[in-house]
Amino acid sequence: MIRWLAALVLLCLGAPALADEMRPVSIQFEQLSEVRWELGWRQPIASASADRDAVPVLPETCRIEGAVDWRMAPLSSVGKAQVSCRGDVAGKAIGWPAFLGQGEAILRVAPLGRNLQVHRLTPEEPSAVIAAKPSSAQVWRSYFLIGVEHILAGWDHLLFVIALVLLVARPWPVIKAATAFTIAHSITLAAVTLGFGGIRQDAVEALIALSIVFLAVEIARGKAETVTRRLPWLVAFAFGLLHGFGFAGALREIGLPEGDIPAALISFNLGVEVGQLLVVAAVLALMALLRRIRPEAEAQTLRLASYPIGIIGAYWLVDRLVG
């Protein structure tokens, strides 16, 4: 019985690891001067067979100057290089050569004095043509995919959503809590992106970790009558405001295309919501399966799940406070 429960807990907590394997390659190609560009990329390592030395395929008029700067980050290989290009790169192709272990790559091109453009690369379309001016449809599509990527690859946001579903446990209250969380983080995401406020990013990241610890403690308390149990939508709304600052920080790092900021902001937020709903549906399905197979084990399974959630959240909290 204990082994069965442990396996089920690991299955419930397997979603973050799976999401990490879904993380795309991230490529940044930024112009520094008329001929100088900086190329940076991060390749998540999904398996031992992944090509960790892969380098983006540059336009034919560009070449890498000097040695590539390599470093290993947690679960990813990171590269950086200086590039020189002859003439305008508009109309030239740039791509990614190795999709083993990853299904897509997000390419960001930042020409000097022109709008940022974002492209999604796949094994079927491993390269993209750099546009002189990105279209509105391209902005909508690209930022939507970035939003989905951010929620699925952002372990802290992902773990918070999982913990919230485990705490509320029933479909209709989960829908209300998830809606409140969505409305709240949409408010702060828009406010920060449009320049109406903000909080230091290191403080935001620490508070997000604290929110995970808080939910883990609430789950571990079982059916104890608390404000969180009575009004989960209110707690979700309060923490949603906080998580919105985190989403805004990620979007700020990506950059927004001038002239298409509303489209980029709305499509990014819609992408976040789609990714979030996928996670909510997956966790609810697992809980429904548990109730059908072994309903008497639900309370103990939830309590068991709260410990690794709390430990991970506490580790992130300490790391973000002292790291």
Rank of each mutant, 00 (worst) to 15 (best):
I212K: 08
G249D: 03
V148I: 15
I45R: 00
G95E: 05
V57D: 06
L167W: 02
I130P: 13
C85Y: 03
D319P: 04
Q201D: 09
W37E: 03
V227G: 04
W172I: 15
Q276H: 08
P308T: 00
E296W: 07
P123I: 13
G195L: 11
T182F: 08
V279Y: 09
A169K: 03
I261S: 09
A305C: 10
V139F: 04
N115Y: 02
W140Y: 11
L304H: 02
V322Y: 05
V174E: 07
I261N: 06
H157C: 13
G255M: 11
R3Q: 15
I106L: 14
G113A: 09
V118C: 08
A67H: 03
A132P: 09
G249V: 04
A297F: 03
A236Q: 06
L8D: 01
R36G: 06
A216Q: 02
S76C: 00
A67M: 12
A191R: 15
R294C: 08
V109I: 15
I27H: 14
L270W: 05
G275N: 09
L302E: 03
Y307I: 15
V161Y: 01
R36F: 12
I311A: 12
E205R: 06
R294E: 10
W70P: 06
E298C: 00
A90T: 05
E258G: 13
V235W: 01
L32H: 04
T228K: 00
A50F: 01
A297W: 09
R141C: 10
E21F: 09
R3N: 04
A105F: 07
I64D: 01
P134V: 14
V83L: 06
A209Q: 03
G244Y: 02
H157R: 08
P171Y: 04
A285G: 08
S127W: 06
P24R: 14
G249W: 05
A250E: 07
S135H: 14
A299V: 08
E225I: 03
I183C: 11
S135I: 15
G101R: 06
A128W: 02
R120F: 11
P111I: 11
A263L: 12
E60F: 14
L277A: 10
